[in-house]
Amino acid sequence: MTDGYRIAPRRVSFDWRETPLHWIPDEPTATHVINVLHLLLPAGERWFVKVFKEALPLVRDEELLKDVKGFMGQEATHSVQHSYVLDHLAHQGLDTTAYTRHVEYLFDVLLGERPPFGLRVSDRAWLRFRLSVVAATEQFTAVLGDWVLRADALDRAEPDPVMLDLLRWHGAEEVEHRSVAFDMFQHCGGEEPARYARRLLGMAITAPVLTYMWAAGASYLIRHDPRLAGRLRYTLRHHKRAIEKGLLPTWRELGAAIPRYLRRSYHPSQEGSLSRAVDYLAVSPAARGAGGGPKGAAAS
Score class of each variant (00 low, 15 high):
D26M: 09
P28V: 03
T31K: 00
H32F: 00
V33I: 03
V33Q: 01
N35Q: 12
N35K: 05
V36N: 03
V36A: 10
V36T: 12
V36Y: 01
H38D: 06
H38W: 06
H38A: 14
L41S: 05
L41P: 07
A43L: 12
G44P: 09
E45K: 08
E45A: 11
E45Q: 13
R46S: 13
R46F: 11
W47H: 11
W47S: 11
W47A: 14
F48D: 02
F48V: 14
V49G: 08
K50N: 02
K50R: 09
K50D: 07
F52I: 13
F52S: 13
A55I: 12
A55K: 06
L56V: 15
L56F: 10
L58G: 13
V59D: 11
R60H: 15
D61C: 06
E62Y: 05
E62L: 04
E63M: 04
E63P: 00
L64V: 07
L64A: 09
K66Y: 04
K66N: 06
K66G: 08
D67I: 01
V68C: 10
K69N: 04
K69C: 07
K69F: 03
G70I: 05
G70D: 03
F71I: 01
M72S: 07
M72C: 15
G73P: 04
Q74V: 14
E75K: 08
A76R: 14
S79A: 15
S79Q: 06
Q81F: 02
H82Q: 13
S83N: 01
S83P: 10
V85N: 02
V85G: 01
L86P: 00
D87K: 00
D87Y: 00
D87N: 01
H88L: 04
H88M: 01
H88E: 01
L89Q: 04
A90D: 06
A90Y: 00
A90T: 00
G93A: 06
L94C: 09
D95P: 05
T96I: 08
T96G: 10
A98N: 01
A98Q: 04
A98P: 00
A98E: 11
Y99R: 12
Y99I: 05
T100M: 06
R101I: 04
H102P: 00
V103Q: 10
Y105K: 05
Y105D: 03
Y105L: 00
L106N: 00
L106H: 02
L106D: 02
F107H: 11
F107W: 15
D108S: 06
V109S: 02
L111F: 04
L111Y: 02
E113R: 14
R114K: 15
P116N: 12
F117A: 14
G118Q: 09
G118Y: 11
R120I: 11
V121N: 05
S122H: 13
S122Q: 06
D123P: 05
R124M: 09
A125S: 13
W126Q: 12
W126D: 14
R128G: 08
F129L: 07
R130M: 02
S132H: 07
V133Y: 13
A135E: 04
A136V: 03
A136K: 05
A136W: 14
A136T: 09
E138R: 09
Q139M: 14
Q139Y: 01
F140G: 15
F140W: 09
A142D: 08
A142P: 00
L144Y: 04
D146S: 12
W147K: 10
W147L: 03
W147M: 08
W147Y: 03
V148M: 03
V148W: 02
R150D: 12
D152A: 15
A153C: 11
